[in-house]
Amino acid sequence: MTELLTPEEIDALLLSLEVATRSVFFSLPLAVLVAWVLTRARFPGRTVFDAFVHLPLVLPPVAVGYVLLVLFGTRGPIGAWLYEKFGLQLTFSTAGAALATAVMTFPLMVRAIRIALENVDRGLEAAARTLGAGPLDRFATITLPLMLPGIVAGAVTAFSAALGEFGAVITFVSNIPGETRTLPLALYTAIQSPGGDAVAARLAVISFVLGLTGLLLAEGFARRVRWKLGR
């Protein structure tokens, strides 16, 4: 491996995986909750909330990065509070990169989970109810397992997209080697440097392999689940 890739490339690769993992790990439970609220709850302002959740899909990523900078910067309202209370600094840090990718990939995740939830037969939940299962019990034993394929699909899609997130990351946390320089940022840096063409090509191939692997894994898992459910 060390002969195949340079230390910088390995750094960028590992950092990308770390950022994407943290991003998916923290946003997944929230995405399930938001998908549930958007599908099942009826409240005034639902449409506005729905639009707000999907905003990162249509905004320029740089704009999202800028908003994050305003809110989570060390002098921003949330950023200052986090720093004072927990000593947590998000700007120019890996955690910040994870936050930026999480915000950008959140709509993708919510969409996949929401479709899965809409396809869960509510009659099965009603049946569980007559069998003595309360609301949380029903969610954990019926709804959640049946929407699992969608959750996994959403997580894998979000993970793959997180590996490639560029605009929001570079705006919010800048391009620091070993800290925030993920694959796409390294690729960008290589293209900008004189004589970096070969490095850029290698990084592009790595991105390609990663993306393809993710999509194949997701499809394989979905098939396995469908077979188990007999569909």
């Binding site: 037969d121 009659g123 049946a127 109810r129 007559t130 049946l146 459910l229």
Partner: peptide, 20 residues
């Protein structure tokens, strides 16, 4: 009494077995 504590067994027309 909430449905889940009513202890009324229900057999539906479409069985509604849990596929998982």
């Amino acid at each position: 009494i909430p449905a889940e504590r009513r202890r009324i067994g229900y057999v539906f027309q479409d069985a509604r077995l849990f596929p998982h």
